[in-house]
Amino acid sequence: MKQKLTKGRLLIVFALLTLVLSGCGEPFLSTLIPAGEAGQIAYDLMILSTVIMVGVIIVVSIMFAVAVIKFRRKKGDESIPKQVEGSHVLEIVWTVIPILLLIILTVPTVITTFELADTKAMDKKNEDGTTDALVVNVRASLYWWEFEYPNQKIITSQELVVPTDQRVYFNIKASDVKHSFWIPAAGGKIDANTDNVNKMWLEFDNEKAKEADNLFYGKCTELCGPSHALMDFKVQALPQDEFDQWVTAMQTVDAEAAPQDPQAAAGQEIFNQKCLSCHAVSPADARPEAARLAPNLADFGDRTRVAGILEHNEEELKNWIANPEAYKPGNKMTGTYGELSDQELDQLAAYLMGLKLEK
């Protein structure tokens, strides 16, 4: 008996914890704290759906309770309650009400679907081939993300930079297996396929971005391999003037400039010998897409994470370079070059952490 009571208490505790923790969320990660127009539209639709469903549950539960209490069999009372079988009024009521509820739910759902799928602005080309809308080409690979800004002629990776308070349009595809692009706080997710390009738009509210320290999290949401759960990226949502400054700084990066620090200069030589065949340090990477086999590292020193998951410091960077398989099993960097000595690792880390944009 005591054992049953203990199990019952544990069950109640875990149920309460589940209920409490389900309300937890961070402004950079939760769909329940929308940070832009697309996210707010989806959130409003979710609230509408929830209200309708909860309303139906409450009404049905009340009717069930009334029926159980009022018409329960009593001792000595063998009378049969009035039968309502074949009542046209009741049949009309329980047919019309669900239809009305479906209409209330369907109309905004269809309108929202078409609104979120409206990407015509990114197809309107100027004479020089650019668009007035900000377009980002997203390419998903095992297990990293590439972000190309065709109008600005910039390619970067792992950290998406966008302006606030305007729609950003995305072309999304995959280079190897099926992935899925999702920024929970900004809006819905969409598949990244190898055989076609999917399109969507998102918008980041400036005030919401400030609450999140201008940093949101993105994820792959399609099981793509052993390190699927580690396929993260970050989103820097900046005011328009700061975004313009970032674009200018990226466009003026001199990838061939030799570092002043001798340690970093030695690291640049190592990088050119062992890493340059896959990686690039020029935002204006002119290589064809098929040759871009690994993340562009142009602004690596300014990023917030190493490999999307580790603390951004030289120690973690050296750990990653020395043994990437230990952190992201199945990644394509594993085994692509010979072992580096401790001195070479120090030099390479110094060079990569020095890849920063001029402020």
Rank of each mutant, 00 (worst) to 15 (best):
V168L: 08
K359P: 10
P262Q: 08
M1A: 15
D128W: 08
E344H: 02
R167S: 11
T31P: 01
A35T: 14
I97D: 06
G187I: 03
I97E: 04
V197Q: 00
L19N: 09
G39E: 04
I57W: 10
S22T: 15
C24N: 06
R303H: 07
L17D: 08
K70I: 09
Q3S: 15
P163D: 03
K124E: 14
N126H: 14
P295K: 05
A294R: 04
G308P: 00
R305M: 09
G8M: 10
P259S: 03
V93F: 15
H228L: 01
V51L: 15
R139S: 07
K82C: 05
C278T: 09
S157A: 15
N319M: 03
L223T: 11
S87N: 15
L11W: 06
I58H: 02
G76Y: 09
S180K: 09
N323Q: 11
S30D: 02
G338V: 01
E159S: 13
L142K: 14
K332M: 11
K173L: 00
V161R: 03
D346L: 00
N296I: 12
L102H: 05
A185S: 12
R305K: 12
E26Y: 14
P150E: 10
K356C: 10
A284N: 03
D77M: 11
L100H: 02
A42E: 15
L202T: 00
A326K: 08
G23R: 12
A307H: 00
S277D: 10
A15F: 11
A117T: 03
K125T: 09
L297V: 10
E115W: 13
E289M: 13
N206R: 08
L90R: 08
D205A: 12
